[in-house]
């Protein structure tokens, strides 16, 4: 059960997932209560042009910076758009998502190997995570947890009762930007290593599953982190044994997601009983 993780690349993959569990558990709670599933999905797509431009400008090292800039830009634009009101929130999110992603595709389509770039972007390379990437993720995780610790109370208040929070003197616009930036940072921290499929799932599924068995935000966060850790460990183990023992190429990212979804389905009846 432990032995596969003594292989360096498996150990690094587990470390990366553990770091992501630490940040996605708490951030997922806010994604759930603010109904930001679509925003999370959008952010995983909108960092794509940043990744492309970053790669074209600075090679592999430029990807991180490019994704960061694109992610923060999306967070700002989304916050401004959802405040405006002429176009509904979900429509403007959808349009920003498709536009930014298309921009990335247009940029990438000028180069030859464009399908393989796209695939990496979707799946990430969990098994080829480098120590440097783990360090990047750890640094961003520290920033994210710090921002979250300071803002958690205000963000919770705003999510529950935006009018009373504003009456108490909180600036809703800045709180919304705060949370969107947090989600953007999570996406940037995770997307290169684990791909868009896994990031979206980590932000949405654990909190939704935990919500079926608890009402308390702090427990939601802890349970979410626990679920990711468990699914990450089991997913890596299963895809390892499938590939070593049976020669089946199970994508580890997909396996982790499907385990999380399975947890959600198992907990569904529990939520119904309560």
């Amino acid at each position: 059960m432990i032995e596969p993780f003594t292989v360096p690349f498996m150990g690094r993959a587990l470390a990366e997932i553990a770091l992501l569990a630490l940040i996605c558990g708490p951030v997922g709670v806010f994604v759930l209560v603010r109904r930001l599933s679509f925003v999370s999905d959008a952010l995983t797509h909108t960092v794509f042009p940043g990744v492309v431009v970053g790669f074209l400008a600075g090679g592999a090292d430029g990807i991180f910076l490019g994704a960061l800039v694109a992610g923060l830009l999306t967070a700002v634009v989304l916050t401004v758009l959802t405040r405006g009101g002429a176009v509904t929130d979900d429509a403007s999110t959808a349009v920003l998502l498709t536009a930014m992603f298309s921009l990335g595709v247009v940029l990438v389509s000028r180069r030859s190997s464009y399908t393989s770039d796209l695939t990496t972007f979707l799946f990430g390379r969990l098994l080829t995570v480098t120590t440097q990437q783990i360090a990047e993720t750890a640094a961003l995780a520290a920033v994210i947890l710090g921002l979250l610790a300071v803002g958690a109370r205000a963000l919770l208040f705003r999510a529950f009762d935006p009018v009373a929070a504003a009456a108490a003197g909180y600036r809703t616009f800045w709180l919304d930007l705060w949370l969107n930036v947090l989600v953007a940072l999570v996406v940037v921290a995770a997307v290169r290593a684990v791909g868009t499929i896994l990031v979206v799932a980590l932000l949405i599924v654990p909190a939704a599953a935990a919500r079926l068995v608890t009402d308390r935000p702090a427990v939601l966060a802890l349970l979410g982190t626990g679920l990711i850790l468990a699914a990450g460990y089991a997913g890596l183990l299963i895809s390892w044994h499938a590939s070593i023992g049976y020669g089946i190429a199970l994508t580890s990212a997909s396996t982790v997601v499907l385990l999380l979804v399975a947890a959600y389905l198992v907990l569904l009846p529990a939520g119904r009983l309560r």
Binding site: V29, V33, F157, F160, V163, A164, A165, A167, A168, D215
Partner: peptide, 25 residues
């Protein structure tokens, strides 16, 4: 400020005690 209770999300995962604590934030 006390808003109308009906405007708030009844599904929100927060306890009565936590809601009251928000007044101290």
């Amino acid at each position: 400020y006390v808003p109308q209770a009906g405007d708030l999300d009844a599904d929100f995962p927060v306890t009565a005690g936590q809601v009251v604590l928000m007044g101290r934030y």
